[in-house]
Computed example of a mutant assay.
Amino acid sequence: METTQTFDRLVRAEFAPRSTYLNTASNGLLPARTVAALHEAAVLRAEGRPLTPLHEDVEACRAAYARLAGVPVTRVATGASVAAHTGVIAASLPAGAEVLTADDDFTSVLNPFHVRGDLKVRAVPLERIAESVRPGTALVAVSAAQSADGRVADLPALREAAREHGARTYVDFSQSAGWLPMAADAFDFSASVSFKWLLGPHGAAFLVVPEDFGGLTPVLAGWVAGEAPWDSCYGPVQELARSARRFDLTPALFTFAGLRRSLELIEELGVAAVHAHDVALADRFRAGLADLGHTPVPAPGSAIVSVPGLGGRQGELSRAGIEVSDRAGNLRAAFHLYNTPDDVDRLLAALAG
Rank of each mutant, 00 (worst) to 15 (best):
M1D: 11
T3C: 04
T3L: 15
T4A: 14
T6W: 11
R18E: 14
T20A: 08
T20N: 06
N23S: 15
R33M: 12
A37F: 02
A42M: 08
G48Q: 07
R49D: 09
R49H: 13
R49K: 15
R49W: 08
T52V: 12
T52F: 06
P53N: 04
D57G: 03
V58P: 08
C61P: 04
R62G: 12
A63L: 02
A64E: 09
V73W: 07
T74V: 06
T78A: 11
A83L: 06
G87E: 03
G87Q: 04
V88S: 07
I89A: 02
L93T: 00
A97H: 11
E98A: 15
L100M: 12
V115I: 14
G117N: 04
K120E: 13
V124R: 09
P125T: 08
V133D: 11
V133Q: 07
R134E: 15
V142C: 07
A148F: 12
A153F: 06
D154I: 09
L155M: 10
L158P: 08
R163Q: 14
H165I: 00
H165V: 00
H165M: 00
H165G: 05
A167E: 02
A167L: 06
T169S: 14
Q175N: 12
A184C: 15
D185I: 01
F189E: 03
G200H: 12
P201Y: 10
A204Y: 01
A204S: 08
V208R: 12
V209S: 06
P210N: 07
D212H: 05
D212C: 07
G214Q: 03
A221S: 12
G222N: 13
V224D: 07
A225R: 08
W230P: 02
D231S: 13
Y234D: 10
V237C: 13
S243K: 04
R245S: 08
L249A: 13
G258S: 12
G258F: 06
R261P: 11
L265I: 10
E267H: 12
E267F: 07
L269C: 14
A290P: 05
G293C: 08
V297D: 04
P298R: 08
G301P: 06
S302W: 01
P308S: 04
G309Q: 02
Q314Y: 01
L317A: 14
A320F: 07
E323M: 10
A328Y: 07
L331F: 05
R332L: 15
A333F: 04
N339H: 01
T340I: 01
T340G: 02
D342I: 01
R346L: 02
L347H: 05
A352T: 02
